[in-house]
Design a protein around this nucleic acid. Structure first.
Lengths: 234, 234
DNA sequence: CGCGAGCTTGACGTTGTTCAACTAGAGTGG
DNA sequence: CCACTCTAGTTGAACAACGTCAAGCTCGCG
């Protein structure tokens, strides 16, 4: 299948992690163990799925929806990534000594997650080397993506940051150059690490330059290459 | 042993990763395999140990010295962490599809590293679940620390960032409140994501407020609690 | 003694945040 | 069906934080 332009453009600031399916490496018996013990929970838009600092015995797999994964400190928040279907949340609570959520996750839209006991994950990783390696792969992937996002937020200025986020949303999350926009300006601001007002001004500027088009809740990327150029410059 | 004040203070921006020793979980036979195949290389101050983007078949274990691990893009750099003895460098190159260094590492001071084939690591992770889990632990640890550093650099302002870095150097790297300072102002600036001039001005300010004392190359943290208060505020 | 790298200082400009006011649209209740 | 309110979005002006630039300084070393 032909990929669209927005899907081919590489954004450094990518915010969603395309997790490979680690469970694929389990034997039928092991899969059954996971399935027999897992619980599915549905969350409404805005609800908190996992709260940083709370004890946990489970890890989450996002099966439907979209969640915001963020770090909190001193009443400020930093969005770490957007979890899309297939994303694991709470893998970092696996080590013995920190069975505490290391970040908060909340639902951007209605989402459902499956809860799997960390002990089971640990047991399976011990038994099944391929599964363990797949988890390692996922962690590496997240780490690499985080470096890119980290770089983007700390070294680019507002135009570049916002352009990058827009490309990422179009390319990695909605996978279309035009889409109904679920996020508020405030959430977009949080995501790109700038103030709401700056986001608005910058979006306006992008529109005047014919890079994007916003009509009500409809969002359209018109010139992805132009946006990418802005990323690299600023 | 009693920990000093600087060692007890928690910095969010911690920049060094205290890796547990994953190799400890190997059987004698497996240890022997690693040791028989590993190569030790010494690097001089300033030399590049691993270059982002180059193909690699090996992972590195830093055995002596101190290295700067950083991400490069568009001629700008972002320091990800400081690797101290015991740190693994290049674990993120383990997944099949990216056998490329994901970041650059260079020696702050003379340092020696051991090279271990990624294939051997992979083989051992497959065979030995405890080893695989230990690698997972390390990756989680790095991830958690990176969140803290990410937050610090993007949400604090200059005083807070620099205060945090100073506490981290004292507490995690030199493990003393006074030490001979190996880094130049420029390197300190890179580390805290600010300009050299701002670092100088801020250091001066800290001195005037009696928080630190700098005499030539000698660096002393006088009021760690004061520095920590600055982190939290700004 | 003189050179150069790293360090320091001051002046200035840019960027982006903050604050305050205003607008538009959606939902609510009389 | 119309005020009424509430939230999200928008705009402008003032301000603060930092980076940049340019110049001068210091110290180690040939």
């Amino acid at each position: 299948m032909q990929q669209s332009v927005v899907e081919r453009i590489k954004t450094s600031c990518t915010v969603v992690n395309v997790n490979k399916d680690a469970f694929h490496f389990l034997t039928d018996e092991q899969k059954e163990l996971v399935e027999s013990r897992q619980v599915t929970v549905a969350f409404k838009k805005g609800e908190i799925i996992a709260k940083q600092g709370t004890f946990t015995t489970h890890m989450l797999v996002l099966s439907e929806g979209l969640a915001k994964v963020y770090y909190e400190e001193d009443n400020k928040t930093l969005i770490l990534r957007i979890a899309a279907p297939g994303s694991l949340i709470g893998l970092t609570s696996l080590p013995q000594n920190n069975n505490v959520f290391q970040y908060t996750a909340s639902a951007y839209i209605n989402t459902t997650v499956k809860l799997i006991e960390l002990e089971i994950i640990k047991k399976l990783a011990l038994e099944n080397g391929r599964f363990a390696l797949a988890l390692i792969d996922i962690l590496c992937e997240i780490s690499i993506q985080k470096n890119g996002r980290f770089f983007c937020l700390s070294h680019r200025q507002s135009y570049g940051k916002l352009a990058d986020i827009i490309l990422c949303l179009a390319g990695n999350i909605f996978k279309k150059s035009d889409f109904e926009f679920a996020l508020s300006r405030k959430e977009l601001a949080e995501l790109s690490g700038m103030s709401t007002e700056s986001v608005i001004r910058t979006l306006k500027h992008f529109q005047e330059d014919g890079l994007i088009k916003i009509t009500g809740k409809h969002f359209e990327v018109i010139d992805p290459e132009g946006l990418q150029k802005i990323c690299q410059l600023g």
